[in-house]
Amino acid sequence: MLKDFFGKKVKVINLGIASFADDLRKQGVETVHTDWRPPAGGNKKIQALLTKVANWQSKVKSAKGAR
């Protein structure tokens, strides 16, 4: 069905939910699954805090490199 829909052989890279990849494989679709999740489970507050840490650390590392 998928093949007909796209008009050519479909190859899929699946990010996140593994069962999507399993279903595609069952239909004979060549699929690569990547276990990806949004950072901090999508929690915006935690993402913002992690960004502060990352920014601080890139400055620390740059300062080290400049020395």
């Binding site: 929690n43 507050k45 935690i46 805090l49 992690l50 960004t51 502060k52 840490v53 920014n55 601080w56 400055k59």
Partner: peptide
């Protein structure tokens, strides 16, 4: 863990 992260940022890098 979320509260600890918040406290860590407050202590070390709150102005970033």
């Amino acid at each position: 863990f979320e509260d600890a992260l918040e406290a860590y940022v407050e202590k070390y890098c709150k102005d970033e």
